[in-house]
Design a protein around this nucleic acid. Sequence first.
RNA 1: GCUCAAGUGGCGGAAUUGGUAGACGCGCCGGAUUCAAAAUCCGGUUCUUCGGAGUGCGGGUUCGAUUCCCGCCUUGAGUACCA
Length: 1008
Amino acid sequence: MTYNFNDIEAKWQKYWAENQTFKAENNSEKPKFYVLDMFPYPSGAGLHVGHPLGYIASDIYARYKRHQGFNVLHPQGYDSFGLPAEQYAIQTGQHPAITTAENIKTYRRQLDQIGFSFDWSREVRTSDPSYYKWTQWIFIQLFNSWYNKDADKAEDISELIKIFVSEGNSKVNAVCDDNIEPFSAEEWKTFDTVKQQQILLQYRLTYLAETEVNWCPALGTVLANDEIVNGVSERGGHPVIRKKMTQWSMRISAYAERLLQGLDKIDWTDSLKESQRNWIGKSVGAAVSFKVLANNENGSHAEHVEASHVIDVFTTRPDTIFGVSFMTLAPEHELVSQITTPAQKAEVEAYILATAKRSERDRMADVKTISGAFTGTYAEHPFTKQPIPVWIGDYVLAGYGTGAVMSVPCGDQRDYDFAKHFNIPIPNIFEGVDISKEAYASKDNVVIANSDFLNGLNYKEATKKVIQELEKLGQGEGKTNYRLRDAVFSRQRYWGEPFPVYYVNGMPQMIDAKHLPIRLPEVEKYLPTETGEPPLGNATVWAWDTNKNEVVSNDLIDNKTIHPLELNTMPGWAGSSWYFNRYMDPDNTEAFASKEALNYWKDVDLYIGGSEHATGHLLYSRFWQKFLFDKGLVPVDEYAKKLINQGMILGTSAFTYEFMPSFDADSKYRYNTVLVSNSIFEKYKKKIVLDDDFFSTTFNIMFSSYSSSEKLKIRELVDKGKIGFGFMDRHVDVALINSSDELNVNEFKKWRPEFDDAIFIGEKGEIIEGDNDVYKVGREVEKMSKSKYNVVNPDQICVDYGADSLRLYEMFLGPLEQYKPWNTAGITGVHGFLKKLWKLYVGENGLLVNDTEPSKESLKTLHKTIKKVQEDIENFSFNTSVSTFMIAVNELTAQKCTSKDILEPLLVLLSPYAPHIAEELWSQLGHNESISTAPFPKFDASHLVESSKNYPISFNGKMRFTLELPMDFNAQQIEEAVMANEKTQEQLQGRTPKKVIIVPGKIVNIVG
RNA sequence: GCUCAAGUGGCGGAAUUGGUAGACGCGCCGGAUUCAAAAUCCGGUUCUUCGGAGUGCGGGUUCGAUUCCCGCCUUGAGUACCA
């Protein structure tokens, strides 16, 4: 009986599906364990071998935890809203729901054939109305909430309204829009509904705000910054205009501090946490207000500039306030127009115009050019009362902090460069620091000087002191700033969740939750409308009837009872921000998940996915979870205890090399195509030698259609340097390469008929005709992609070697977190291992396993393996356990082990990695239940006790030979035995050792 | 620029607390089997001037360093005028 993996795998996949072997129960006496993969976007290309890497790792862990007696939740689903399906719809008219469903089918087939232990009864799809009903529901909850800073949590908007009614908004400590006008309770009551709704929007956790976007009228679409080059569209060169659009935003900034603090509670990788910390960008410092001096005090004529203006700045270095020699505002700063003197007006306006023309990208890319303009106005230093010139400069960003800085050239390199460029003084306020060449930006080793009451203090002391003094003046306070911006939540796309929102008098109204889901309407075209509205603007049945509570035809809109619906859809991260909770109770129609299910499963114990989601999905989902927690809707405020990023599997691209001449333009010469093997390319790639065999032979081949005299003429041109030669490399499909990097020339010609007449020169330098020589390709590691022809499909691997081989090999490639290249040739190693394993159990005449007593060696092999595999799984070191299995099978084969006491537990160890072969052999051993129900073998250290040790004997730290000595020898006995050994004397060559280091059970090191 | 990660044979990688560097596998070389090939099995495979040398480079700590410390170099990822 041979190892017929195709039959075995099909058999057990069917068995698992029919018996629902991996269905998780929401009620169980067992402890729970939740293993989650980041769910995939089902793309049309299907899976390649890189995609399942993380799924295999999590599957091994999930299966291991089942053997350990846990009730394991290991679900899978699809993040099925998204751009590619929509692009395809635009091109073909095919409804995205149809392509998405087809793609999911392909994914499911591919996932099934790898033998994952997913509980498919819990599958979710974000584009399914029964799922996005709850995405819409959560959106409504966000709309109906505000962030109370005093309670440090989200609260219902009705609480806020109560406060407004009883005392106005002056005491409200909320995260909200800037510049909200204060009002009293009486005023609130006099406001009309629209006014009240406008005010409430400024507090809600999701709110409408005007945002500037790049609008291209010719293309009828919004463009991202990187789609615009020199002010025109990258495609077609159409003009682009800045347009304000009303967009939904999420007030994630309210959670900045909690998102930061929460990182300390969760076991995620340091690099990922670091990314999130950088993204949140907390800086601690001070807010300082500088009074603008009325211009007449400075001899200017601009009487209209009043002293009441104040420039607010944020600084992380309030300790350097005496080093301020100018202030800089962003050109877009709203005060600029108000404070500029008539004399400077022309210059300032020209500068603003010039910077406005430059795109954000240009400004960011061009950091070196220093530019700016003086406003003509001065501000007053809060302590010295000296006038400080106010400049504008585009190195100050309008979007960060207050859009204005106090410039301290001695302590900030950008301020320093600006000051040098415009000849502004650079006062030094650091004791013993040379600032003649550059600023001293460090906070360490600072002793403040020339700074009045701060003299002699260090950074910390001075910061504390100056904030106290600023507070006394009422011109500043300690402040913390975050880089994290509120997130735009609207997309001008079709294939996303519709908002449960209609508009009355321009104000957004939530549809009552009991009428959800609001389904995506049908549209004729998936493009934006001619008037620039999002694709939903094409829908003819897209209005809300507030009497019937249903979506009705647009014709009926009367703005009394029937109102227009929102035309934007939600972004990709909406559905993925809470799906991990839905898996706990996926079919619930009353809630996004029941309280019981949420309290039983609570959170994800292990989450595996790619690091590309570090600041997107993984931040937004933490934000939503914290919000749901505040509202008492989930029991924990961090949803994933442990997270691992799997590395990417890279492709090993293959290249052919064409050796070709480079003629001057309009050459009449025609030549034969010559492809050379890799070693020839390697030999000549740097320099082509004109007077050796290779060149003369190849030259003759290339120009074989010419007469000898003509060839001589061409050769002359070559020697004169008129014709040069070089190599052209081309990607070749890795499917045409064998395990020795040899190209199948005939198949290649079928794949690329234009090379039908090409001449192939092989490794030996011979023209390939039959099998006289071989053509080897060059290889390079690159990202796996269709265009590089290095994509390897798991389907073919499963056919040729089986899913168990694929699973083992993906793990065997290297550490889970690392980037590593795929090379299909290597799979024969793990495949051979499985065959060897099979032969250990099954001989030509049937099962070999019997009830003989296991030998000491076999017991040692088994327990060594149990220990190592258990440690490896718990450390996510799956590559090393594959090696361990190989060693175990090699040893047991050598021992001719047939004992059931050894071979049965070995199958349980292996089953998380290679579940199909393990199930098959398990059932052949007489078991009727799935191996997944078997307990994990117990490690017994007594089998590993040794009576002797093969000591490495080192001389000055270098191992020279080994010596077998009894384990119970003490240090003195060891030393005697070692010194008496003739090899020791040989090494010493008569010298007396200075010292002998002996660590019993470990090593012997002789010094001298 | 900053932050993070990583540099070990021809290749993927191993060495878990400082203790025999190169486990395991691929590839390659040699052999057995075969009419032949595939498959399978056995042996070898860091380099070497055969003394030794050797884990990106230069130092240091130690009896002993891939592992710890200091300084650099290279590669990859993220981020970028963040005050």
